[in-house]
Design a binder for these strands. Sequence first.
DNA 1: GCTGCGATTGACT
DNA 2: GTCAATCGCAGCT
Length: 227
Amino acid sequence: MTHPVPPPAPRLTRAALDHGPLELAPRLLGLMLVHESDAGRVAVRLTEVEAYAGEGEDPGSHAFRGRTPRTSVMFGSPGHLYVYFTYGMHWCANVVCGPDGTAGAVLLRAGTIVDGTELARSRRAGSTRGRQPLADRDLARGPARLTTALGLDGAANGVDLCDPAGRVWLAPAPAPRAAPPAVVIRRGPRVGVSGPGGDAGRYPWRFWLDGEPTVSPYRPGVRRVRR
DNA sequence: GCTGCGATTGACT
DNA sequence: GTCAATCGCAGCT
C-alpha cells in the first residue's frame, strides 16, 4: 500500500527575507511561522514584530557593540533564526535579515495560533504551572510566550528557515476565502527597550496589525533599581 | 574572576 | 499598580 506524498510545505525563500530589518519587519506581519516537531505542528500568524539593526546604529540591539559569540547569528546570512535567552528563564526568537556580515533581525513579538492550538496550549500550560486557564489570544501574546507556544528554544538558534528539509519555516499568509480584509499596519516605539534604543522618536521600530487582540500594550523600558 | 542587568512573565497588592 | 524569579552575557577589574 502506498501512501500519498504530501506536497512540500510552502515556505518563503531567502530572497523574500533578504531586506533590511525596517523593510522586512512589516512584511513579516500576517505570515505564518511553523514549527514541526515530533510532538506535532504549531503555526502562528504573526501580528506584532520589532526591527533591530546592527553594530553602532541601534543602541537597543544586542549587536550594537559588535559581534560576540551570542550575537554571531545576527551577523550571518538572512533567513536564519536568532533565539536568545533572557531574564534567566525566557527564550525570544528573531528572523535574521540583511546581508551576510551585517547585523539585523526582527523580533517576533506576538501572533495568533492558526494550527496546533492544543499542543501550543499544553506547552504554555506547562510554563504557567496550570494555575490559570489560558485564553486562545494569550497563547502567543508576547515574545517569550510565542516562542514557548511554538516549542522553540536555544536548540533553534541558527536554524535555517529556508532549508527545504528544515522543521521551522515561514509560510505565506493563507489565501482569504472571500475578499481580503483591509490590513492596516501600524508602527510605534519598541516595547521594553531601555536607554537610547527606547527613544520613541528615533526608533519607532515596532510594527503591528491594527486591531489584533494579541498585540502588546506599550511598556517603556525600565531600569531596575538596586536595593 | 566579579558584577550588573536584561528585546519578560506571572503573581500579587 | 509593584515585584520576584533566575542565569547567561558582556563589561569591567
